[in-house]
Amino acid sequence: MYHAIKERVTELLSTGEVKGFLALKKDNGHIKPHLYVSPDEIDQLSIGDGETAGDARYPLTKILTMLLQNHSGEPFGILARGCDQRALRALAAWNQISLEQVVVIGVACSEELARACNCGLPYPDEWLEGEQIEPKDPRPVEWEAKSPLQRLDLWRAEFEKCIKCYGCRNICPMCFCKECSLESEDVVTKGEIPPDLPMFHLVRALHMIGRCVDCGLCEEACPASIPLRALYKKVNDIVETRFQFRAGIEQTEQSPLHKIAEPPAAI
C-alpha cells in the first residue's frame, strides 16, 4: 500500500534531498512516529491506518518543530494530512519553523476519517494518496442549537471532568510557548482538581485565537473526553466571523489580533 508515497520517500532519501523523513511506522502491530533516515525501513511506513482509516494520529508537526530547531538549515520531509499542512503554515507564520527546507508529502483523508474528524478541510495542497473529500461544516452547530442555560450546564459538567493532565496543551502543534499561562499560579490554582472553572479551559481557548488549525488532537488526547474541539471550533468561528481569518490557510499571515500595525476597532 501507499506505493506512490514510498517511492517518493525512497527517492528523497537516496538522493539526499532530505536528511530524514518524518512519518509513521508500523512496528509489531503498533503505529508510532518515526524519522526515516535510510530507504531500508520504508516498507514499514504507515499513514496511520490502524483498525480503521487514519485512527492512529500523532502531532508530527510538533516533532518536526523540535527537529528543525535542533538541526536548523537541514532539509527534512514530512508526511502531512490537511490538518498537518495547516499546522505547518501556521507554525511558519509564527516564526517557529522555516518551510524552505521542508518537503511536504501530502495524504488526503478518506471519507471515513473526514467524517469521524468532522474536518473542515480534509486534504493538503497536493497529495500522493487519497482523494478529495467534501469538507464538513467547521462550526460547532450541535452546540449552538442549545439554549445558553443548557450550554452552561453541559460545559460545566464537561469542564468538571478535567484532571488537569495538560494533555491538550502537550499534544497541540500550536502550543509552542516556552512559558504557559496554564502553569501560572495567578490563573490556575496549584494542586486542585478540577482546575478553576471555567478559567483553565477558557484561557486555553483564548490563546487558540488565530492559532488553532482544528486538527482535533486535543480531543483525541483528552482522557476525560471533554469535547474540546467544539470549544476551539467556536474560537475559530468567532475569529473568522469577526476578522475573516482562519489559521494555517495563508502561508505567512498571523491573525489580525496579533498584528500591531492596525489601530483597534471599536468594541
Partner: peptide, 12 residues
C-alpha cells in the same frame, strides 16, 4: 470581544 462571544458560547 472574542472572549465575550466565547463566554456566551459556554452559557455565561
Amino acid at each position: 470581544a472574542v472572549l465575550r462571544d466565547l463566554l456566551e458560547f459556554v452559557g455565561i
